[in-house]
């Protein structure tokens, strides 16, 4: 059995040590917010937070997380980033959005008033194939003024 803490709740899951965190979240814990995109750490659809930092959960072996805090979009509870994404209608198909929201949340928790360059550099790890990047950036700017607490 492998122990991990997700959104403040402790879990024990029956998984191989090399199983990606993403599979455990979706298949064992029923947390389907994080998406499988490329499986190679290139697209960011699977982004979740580990100890407050964004990681690609598709490349995070579940066995490295024993003493650490995992947060997924299910644990945000409608924060300012989520509201801003809704306000500006940042989603088109929506597949990348959970990852985008998690990365933006990490940014604003650490840097409440980022410059435009900082937003673009930080968000560049996540891709949107529909091409709504301009609205996503607008949502991050809007959320930045509203205060995002860890």
């Amino acid at each position: 059995m492998i122990r991990l803490t997700v959104n403040g709740q402790q879990h024990e899951v029956d998984a191989e040590a090399d199983t990606p965190l993403l599979y455990v979240l979706r298949d064992d814990l029923g947390l389907n917010g994080a998406k499988f995109g490329c499986g190679l750490g290139q697209c960011g659809a699977c982004t979740v937070l580990v100890d407050g930092q964004p990681v690609f959960s598709c490349l995070t072996p579940v066995s490295v997380l024993a003493e650490r805090q995992v947060r997924t979009i299910e644990g945000l509870g409608g924060n300012a980033v989520q509201r801003a994404f809704e306000d500006v209608q940042a989603a088109q198909c929506g597949y990348c959005i959970a990852g985008m929201v998690m990365r933006a949340t990490a940014l604003l928790e650490h840097n409440p008033h980022p410059h435009e360059d900082e937003i673009r550099a930080y968000m560049s790890g996540n891709l949107c194939r529909c091409g709504t990047h301009m609205r996503i950036l607008e949502a991050v700017r809007q959320a930045a003024g509203q205060g995002v607490k860890p």
Partner: peptide, 8 residues
């Protein structure tokens, strides 16, 4: 194979 190598 090492599990961390295999997974990451």
């Amino acid at each position: 194979e090492d599990p961390v190598f295999a997974g990451a």
